[in-house]
């Protein structure tokens, strides 16, 4: 079942088409990656899904019914890219306040916050103020306030920016846990490598339009170019064969692109015949980064990624 369906959603601003006809379906319990460069329209899209903006046209179906911002926001947890908390407010009270805005009762909010604080070792924070916390700590707090009310749909915009690896892993584990317990997570980022670890299904947007949609594994298969890498001891300086072309060569590593209808075994056989001692031979799947560059080649957005 789809927790969220978006049909031909459009939102135009005076100067640009921020979201220009995006459709997508998000399955319940999945971790969904929303990818795209800065300014692709991700945040605008998320703001429509969270009821902050109203779309110019198109339709949002939440949990099988037409999205009703006033009621449905209680089932959505949104962590915006730019984090925000009241700096001078007591952390415990602040968490209770934000939870109650999501419709939780006072006692309910209190017990849930206590449980989360215990889980993430934040019990001592209750009477502190946000201004006393480090950036990573307030990030953790922001995450807790986002997922506190057991939302069916959790939307995280760049959740790991500014987090050290230890805390990033902590949050990552919690994201997996939440998904295991039935929540759906939309994970929006422009850092492609993070998505490859976490998401099963992705949508890639650029300039307000969807340019890719599918399971991560399928997408990688679709975009693979029959490139294999081989590690061996005695690779000759010049390798020639009718079976493949050499893409790149380093002293102990060879990247080859197989010609059409050639099976990897034939290549292996070729090298075995040559008496090469092979250590490793495996297919090289394109990274999302590469796929993205290929799709939007030549545009300003792709240059932004080639630099990295």
């Amino acid at each position: 079942m789809n927790i969220l369906e978006v049909h031909d959603l459009k939102k135009y601003f005076a100067t640009q088409k921020a979201v220009d006809g995006i459709s997508m379906n998000i399955e319940q319990g999945s971790i969904f990656g929303l990818l795209g460069p800065n300014g692709a329209g991700k945040t605008t899209l998320l703001r429509m899904i969270t009821g902050i903006f109203y779309q110019d046209s198109g339709e949002i179906i939440f949990n099988g019914k037409k999205f009703n911002p006033e009621k449905d926001v209680e089932h959505i947890g949104y962590m915006p890219e730019e984090r925000g908390l009241y700096k001078k407010m007591n952390i415990g009270e602040q968490a209770v306040y934000l939870a109650r805005l999501k419709g939780l009762s006072k006692t309910d909010a209190n017990s849930k916050i206590k449980a989360w604080f215990e889980k993430l070792e934040m019990e001592s924070w209750w009477n502190k103020k946000v201004e006393d916390l480090s950036k990573g700590m307030s990030q953790k707090l922001q995450f807790v306030t986002t997922v506190l009310h057991n939302p069916k749909l959790i939307i995280l915009d760049e959740p790991f920016s500014g987090l050290d690896p230890v805390n990033a892993n902590l949050i990552k584990d919690e994201i997996f846990n939440l998904a295991k317990n039935g929540a759906t997570v939309i994970f929006s980022t422009h850092r492609m490598e993070q998505v490859e670890e976490i998401c099963k299904h992705i949508v890639l947007v650029n300039k307000g339009q969807k340019i890719l949609d599918g399971k991560l594994a399928d997408i990688k298969n679709d975009f693979k170019e029959n490139i294999y890498s081989m590690q061996a001891d005695n690779i000759p300086d010049q390798v020639f064969s009718t079976l493949f072309e050499v893409v790149k060569q380093t002293p102990d590593k060879l990247f080859i692109k197989l010609n059409e209808n050639v099976k990897p075994n034939e290549v292996l056989q070729h090298f075995i015949n040559e008496k090469t001692s092979i250590h490793a031979f495996n297919e090289v799947l394109p990274s999302l980064n590469e796929i993205f560059i290929k799709l939007v080649d030549g545009t300003a957005a792709s240059r932004q990624f080639q630099k990295k």
């Binding site: 209680e74 949104y78 962590m79 915006p80 730019e82 925000g84 009241y86």
Partner: peptide
């Protein structure tokens, strides 16, 4: 904080 609050 405004964006967090007005998502509720």
């Amino acid at each position: 904080i405004a964006e967090v609050v007005i998502s509720s």
